[in-house]
């Protein structure tokens, strides 16, 4: 059974199509990840599903209902922190419980249950201003876990969290998730998207590729990637490295570059030699298994982590 059906949805801002005639069906219980760079339209699409925004054309159905009529079933976790830092964790959850029309007496046991579920029992009565980023995100996750919520929309939930807190967050999601809960994850982080059962790559308002994480990687024709950490980054080094990359594609990373070439055995010494002959230093070089971010780059030539111009 489909929990979400999106048909020919278009959303424009000032004449620019942010979501472009998009079609998508998500099954009940599915963990779907929309992955794409900033400005690709994924947050706009998720906000349409959550009935925060309305589309210019097309239809969205949540279990056959218009999203505005299905708000009780949808839990939306925005990217930014929205909890009140001057209140305690318990007070914040009680506020959202009452906003969801729980009576005072009904709210208390539900809030206690949620606090235990997200592992904040010891810190529930501390002010949120004293929480770490990971604790605050878990608290805010609890605001979408009230009984009756069938669709969880997580918009870049791990932004600003360290790798350990990110793993803990998805560990919590794995425990919470049951067979009937549908999850939509909005992310530009490949390792986050690996947790999903299906991933849709979104670019320029369209879904350009879709499949399980393994299918997307297997069908990408990417066997190996060479990761190079250099002492400096500039155009000259890029020109040298492009000569070694299949199709001339070069992916800039935080510490250097990635190149795509299925031959690894003999190529690494050649790269080292070519770079060092020009007077530059390679700090580290090695082959790595392709990630979903690499597959996205191969398909679009864009990095999912880059700011879109």
């Amino acid at each position: 059974m489909d929990s979400i059906v999106i048909k020919n949805v278009t959303k424009e801002y000032s004449g620019k199509k942010v979501v472009d005639n998009l079609n998508l069906n998500i099954k009940e219980g599915e963990f779907y990840c929309l992955m794409g760079p900033n400005g690709s339209g994924k947050t706009t699409l998720s906000s349409i599903i959550a009935s925060i925004r309305t589309q210019n054309s097309g239809t969205v159905e949540i279990y056959g209902k218009n999203p505005s009529k299905a708000k009780d079933m949808i839990g939306y976790l925005p990217q930014e922190n929205f909890s009140d830092s001057s209140l305690t964790g318990r007070e914040n959850l009680t506020y959202f419980a009452r906003m969801l029309r729980y009576k005072r007496k009904e709210a208390s046991p539900v809030v206690n249950d949620l606090i235990n579920k997200i592992g904040l029992a010891e810190d529930a009565d501390k002010r949120v201003s004293k929480y770490s980023g990971g604790m605050r995100k878990r608290l805010e996750l609890a605001t979408i876990l009230f009984p009756g919520t069938k669709i969880l929309i997580l918009d870049e939930p791990t932004t600003g969290l360290d790798p350990s807190a990110r793993r803990n967050f998805f560990g919590l999601i794995d425990i919470i998730k049951d067979e009937t809960t549908t999850i939509i994850l909005i992310s530009h982080i490949g390792s986050d998207a690996e947790n999903a059962s299906r991933v849709g790559f979104m670019d320029d308002g369209k879904i350009i590729a879709e499949g399980t994480p393994d299918d997307l990687k297997n069908n990408s024709d990417l066997k190996t990637i060479i990761n190079i950490e250099t002492s400096i980054k500039n155009e000259k080094i890029m020109e040298i490295l492009k000569g070694f990359s299949k199709g001339g594609k070069l992916h800039e990373t935080e510490k250097g570059y990635k190149i795509y070439n299925n031959e690894t055995e003999g190529i690494i010494p050649k790269i080292v030699k070519a770079v060092e002959e020009k007077g530059y230093k390679i700090i580290q070089i090695g082959s790595i298994i392709p990630s979903l971010e690499d597959v996205f780059f191969k398909l679009t030539g864009k990095s999912v982590r880059e700011e879109k111009e």
Partner: peptide, 18 residues
């Protein structure tokens, strides 16, 4: 600024009551 309205808009909350 915190995005509370953005969050509340996704919930079955009536603005006049808030």
């Amino acid at each position: 600024y915190k995005g509370l309205f953005y969050k509340l808009k996704s919930m079955p909350v009536q603005p006049w009551k808030e």
